[in-house]
Simulated assay, not measured.
Amino acid sequence: MAEDLQILQSADKAAQYQSLLPQIEALIQGETDLTANLANIAAALKEQFKWFWVGFYLVKNGELVLGPFQGPVACTRIGLGKGVCGAAWQQRKTLIVPDVEAFPGHIACSSLSQSEIVVPFFKGDEVVGVLDVDSELLDQFDETDALYLEELVKMIVF
């Protein structure tokens, strides 16, 4: 198991992901505890990119329930179709929101959050959770983030 991350600061975003994803895979490989893996994934992403908030919500009893995260305290439960997380869950696709204030029904867990990306992950055909990332900057996320974060969530095993 490798607990030390090699953080690239000067590389472009794609290179940072290309360096980080194999490290995350090595970190979670062989570990069967979902909570431990999600916690390490959130920590690795926060460490690499210095985003405001990185975490997971898991589908439980018909709602998204807060899971492991890095950042300030967060909303605990989110309904289907509610906010960016609930919308990504309902639509079964990654949502990139350049300005959260312009997103209809945005749930402001923190007024400091300015942009967001939410990536659903699946067990078979069923959405079982979402990776939620918030930034204090407007327009922080793009298709590069979507591509690599979608690859990352495929590593999550239930």
Rank of each mutant, 00 (worst) to 15 (best):
D125W: 07
L38E: 06
W51H: 05
D33V: 14
D132S: 06
A44C: 11
S113F: 06
V127S: 02
Q48P: 04
E150T: 00
V84R: 03
W51K: 05
Q70M: 09
V73A: 13
P98R: 04
I7C: 12
V65C: 08
Q140G: 04
I41K: 01
D139R: 10
G55Y: 02
T144P: 02
I117M: 04
L149D: 01
E63W: 06
K82E: 12
E136V: 12
I156A: 02
L152Q: 00
E116Q: 09
K13S: 08
N61V: 14
T94E: 01
A11S: 14
Q23L: 12
S10E: 11
Q91F: 15
C75R: 07
E126K: 11
V73Y: 07
V157S: 07
W51R: 04
I41S: 03
W89A: 03
G67T: 05
I107P: 03
A146S: 01
R77I: 15
F69N: 03
E136M: 15
Q18K: 15
L58S: 05
P22V: 12
F121W: 03
K50E: 10
A146F: 00
G129K: 02
G129P: 03
L64H: 04
V157Y: 05
L5V: 14
Q18Y: 12
D139F: 09
P68D: 06
Q91Y: 12
F49C: 06
T94G: 02
A88T: 07
A108N: 15
E136A: 11
G62F: 12
Y17Q: 08
S19I: 10
I28T: 07
V153H: 00
G30C: 15
K60S: 10
C85R: 03
I156L: 02
Q23P: 07
D134V: 06
G30M: 08
L27D: 06
L66A: 05
F52S: 05
L5S: 10
P72Q: 07
A146H: 00
P104E: 08
V119G: 00
W89G: 02
T35I: 13
W51I: 06
T32L: 13
E63D: 12
A102R: 11
M155H: 02
G83T: 09
A108C: 12
Q140F: 05
E3P: 10
L112I: 14
C75Q: 10
G124W: 07
K123Q: 14
D33E: 14
I117S: 02
A102F: 14
A102N: 11
E136L: 08
Q48E: 13
T76Y: 12
A43Q: 11
M1V: 13
I156K: 01
Q16L: 10
N40G: 12
Q70N: 09
Q6F: 14
V73G: 07
E31L: 14
E116R: 04
K82H: 10
P68E: 07
T76N: 08
F69Q: 03
I107K: 04
A108Q: 07
I24Y: 04
L147E: 00
F122S: 01
L131Y: 01
D125P: 03
I117E: 00
Q23C: 09
D4M: 11
Q140A: 12
Q70E: 08
L20C: 09
L149G: 01
V118K: 02
A44S: 13
E116P: 06
I28D: 02
V133H: 01
D125Y: 10
L5Q: 08
L138T: 08
